[in-house]
Design a protein around this nucleic acid. Structure first.
Lengths: 243, 243
DNA sequence: GCACACAAAATGTCAGACATTTAAACGTCA
DNA sequence: TGACGTTTAAATGTCTGACATTTTGTGTGC
């Protein structure tokens, strides 16, 4: 990890790439300290501000963390699940909002992924997770709940369902799919009747998980998908009718 | 989008967060130009290098792009699927390599997700995609193929299967799961016999997609998962026996 | 042996300058 | 009038040098 070929511009991007590649390739291990900014500047033959811009790029991706003071510096960061979740959610949310992804497509993706972990969740969900889901269902049946709070509870319910699979990699992958849908869901005004229907389907899902019946959970999720799609279409039609 | 409360340190992180929030909240739209670095410096009452560090953070997340010259500057970037794929793959790869995720867990997640799009792919795969899969199967049956090339072909096969679902959001979500597994798969030495078994399973998947039989595709994927798991265990055992 | 002060090393921040790139505005010439 | 080169201005990219701040290790004095 030394040189950047004198080709196209933007030195800080080149330097960031060189360091990033070293980390990905395993040439730098977790918690290893990078050379100081002054040393890096000398190594790459650039000035310190340029090195700093490169380091900030890496920090933005959670690849490194910095510490001030003596014996401080930049260290290779262990990418935690929590940080990965956060990035995943940010990226997925922006992807959806900036590429006019239709409600249908996003919905299909989300429920396809959720169904994938339904059998695993039916097998492994803890009593605690089941209790959380029941509690959220109870909250969702409170008529006084605002639409935003209803959506937030919905997200928690589905996150718990996903976490029930007991596979952190799966949870990480699905975090984006579930959370990124929330802004789209927030556009829906939930009537008392639609809330009732959703709560009924959530109950079916929870029942299926309680009895370790993966197939039933999948079926209930499919029904929930169909119903969500219907609600979304109503909103779109109402909006189109208005102008 | 102006002020950052004078609380904890790292001005460039605070400024980056302020701008990022504005973009996520939709207060800045795609292709909108940010104020120049000098103007931002004045707005936030910091120096230009500090502003630049903040902008580089955002650039690292593909949230903005910069253009030099007159009427250049920083513009809100439309997050393309391609960029999102790239970030997703980088993050997923690092997550797996830095958190000693077991082969079993990664494998389970990958195949659970792939099964999720099997029914959709069976319904929608194009003739072109089917041809690509057949071609990769043919390549995989060439005995002269190196292990790395075999793995690369495997990735292409599965990516095509996923893309066959015709849902870009799903493709984006699964890019990480499929590609991040490659380093783990690359550790496996594929014998002639195991290659034969994998090719047979790939053929069963392609056949199922050809006849639009989603259930058969799911079953074949489950069998492939079981076999992959077996291969992985053999490698682990051989490694444990050695040292 | 302990508390305190000090020094050293590193990041964080600033100011000012120069280099480079880019497109618009301008002017010249057919 | 119109096409084409030139100038110019605005912006990012980079460098230099300095100072501020934070943190840790160390040494002094009691």
């Amino acid at each position: 990890m030394k040189i950047d070929p004198e080709q196209k511009s933007d030195l800080s991007a080149q330097i960031a790439k060189a360091i990033r590649d070293a980390i990905i390739a395993g040439r730098m291990i977790v918690d290893e300290r990078l050379p100081s900014e002054a040393e890096l500047a000398e190594q790459f033959a650039v000035s310190r501000p340029t090195v700093r811009e490169a380091l900030k790029r890496l920090a933005a991706q959670s690849l490194i963390r910095t510490q001030r003071g003596a014996f401080g510096g930049a260290f290779v960061n262990r990418l935690s699940y929590a940080e990965a979740y956060g990035q995943q959610i940010t990226t997925a949310t922006l992807l959806l909002s900036m590429n006019d992804v239709s409600f249908d497509v996003a919905c299909e993706a989300r429920y396809a992924l959720e169904r994938a972990c339904a059998p695993l969740s039916a097998k492994r969900r803890t009593a605690d997770q089941l209790a959380t889901m029941r509690a959220e269902i109870h909250r969702q049946s409170q008529p006084a709940l605002s639409d935003e709070a209803f959506c937030a509870s919905d997200v928690t319910f589905h996150r718990t369902l996903v976490d029930g699979a007991g596979n952190p990699v799966l949870s990480y992958q699905l975090a984006g799919a579930v959370e990124a849908m929330q802004p789209l869901m927030n556009m829906i005004t939930f009537t008392a009747r639609s809330r009732e229907a959703i709560v009924a389907l959530h109950t079916r899902i929870a029942d299926a998980l309680e009895t370790h019946d993966g197939a039933a959970a999948e079926t209930a999720l499919s029904n929930l998908e169909a119903y969500t799609l219907e609600l979304g279409r109503d909103v779109m039609n109402a909006r189109a009718a208005k102008g």
